[in-house]
Amino acid sequence: MQGFAFRHLLGRIAFLGALWVVLSGLEPKALAVGTVAVPAAVWLSLRLLPGPRHLAVWRALRHLPAFLGASLLGGLDVARRALSPRMPLAPGWVEVPVHLPDGGRVALGAELSLMPGTLAAGTRNDRLLIHLLDVNAGFEDAIPREEAAIAAMIDGEPAPREGG
C-alpha cells in the first residue's frame, strides 16, 4: 500500500506540475511561484480526493480533446444566441443526480461551469444544481456523459446510474 501511496503522490505532483507549466509557461518567475503553488495544490487535492481513489492522468488527458471540443461548440452556440435578433434563450435551473464522491462532484461542477451556457451552483443531497442558458437545449443528456468521464478518470469505471 505504501508503494501505491508514493506513486499516487508522484502522479499528482507530475500532473499538477505539468498543468502549472502549461498554464503559466516556463518563465523563471512563474516557475518560482509554481514551487509554492504546485505543492499547495497537491496537498489540497489529497484533502479533497484522498486514496484509494486516484486520478488516472492518461484518462484525464484522453478526455481533454472532448472537453475542448465541447467548449468550442458551446462558445459558438452562446455567440450565435447573443448575436441573434431573437436571442433564443430559456434560462433556468435543473437538478441532475450525481453519483460521484465529493471530489468528483467538485470536478464535475468545475468542468460544467467552464462550459459556455452552464453554471454549476452547488449541490442538494445527491443532486447537482445547474443554471442553464437554455433549458430546452438538451444539456441534461450531456451532463451524465461528463459524469461518467470524470468517474472513469477517478476510478477507471463509469459512475453507476439510477436503474442500472
Results as ranks from 00 to 15, higher is better:
residue 84 S to W: 07
residue 106 V to E: 05
residue 35 T to P: 00
residue 16 L to S: 02
residue 46 L to S: 10
residue 27 E to P: 00
residue 47 R to Y: 03
residue 128 L to V: 04
residue 135 V to K: 12
residue 28 P to W: 05
residue 151 A to Q: 03
residue 31 L to C: 03
residue 86 R to N: 13
residue 142 A to V: 05
residue 37 A to C: 02
residue 134 D to I: 06
residue 163 G to M: 03
residue 52 P to M: 08
residue 41 A to F: 07
residue 53 R to T: 11
residue 100 L to P: 02
residue 134 D to G: 08
residue 96 V to G: 01
residue 157 E to R: 15
residue 60 A to Y: 09
residue 107 A to L: 15
residue 146 E to H: 07
residue 16 L to F: 05
residue 158 P to N: 10
residue 37 A to Y: 04
residue 144 P to D: 05
residue 141 D to T: 14
residue 113 S to W: 08
residue 39 P to H: 09
residue 36 V to G: 01
residue 26 L to A: 12
residue 19 L to Y: 09
residue 86 R to Y: 12
residue 66 A to E: 11
residue 16 L to A: 01
residue 63 H to D: 15
residue 38 V to F: 03
residue 73 L to E: 15
residue 60 A to S: 14
residue 82 A to R: 08
residue 113 S to H: 05
residue 27 E to V: 04
residue 105 R to E: 06
residue 39 P to W: 08
residue 29 K to T: 12
residue 7 R to I: 12
residue 129 L to S: 13
residue 27 E to N: 14
residue 161 R to P: 00
residue 149 A to K: 01
residue 22 V to K: 00
residue 143 I to C: 01
residue 63 H to E: 14
residue 148 A to H: 00
residue 70 A to M: 09
residue 126 D to W: 03
residue 74 G to W: 02
residue 112 L to R: 02
residue 126 D to S: 09
residue 17 G to W: 04
residue 103 G to R: 05
residue 13 I to Q: 05
residue 27 E to A: 15
residue 98 V to Q: 03
residue 19 L to D: 12
residue 15 F to T: 10
residue 64 L to R: 12
residue 50 P to V: 10
residue 76 L to F: 06
residue 137 A to Q: 13
residue 115 M to C: 08
residue 142 A to S: 13
residue 10 L to T: 09
residue 55 L to G: 06
residue 73 L to H: 14
residue 108 L to T: 01
residue 89 L to Q: 07
residue 49 L to D: 10
residue 30 A to C: 07
residue 97 P to G: 02
residue 96 V to H: 08
residue 19 L to N: 09
residue 120 A to L: 02
residue 100 L to F: 08
residue 94 V to M: 00
residue 142 A to D: 13
residue 81 R to Y: 10
residue 123 T to S: 11
residue 122 G to E: 06
residue 27 E to F: 06
residue 50 P to E: 10
residue 42 V to P: 03
residue 66 A to W: 11
residue 56 A to E: 09
residue 72 L to N: 07
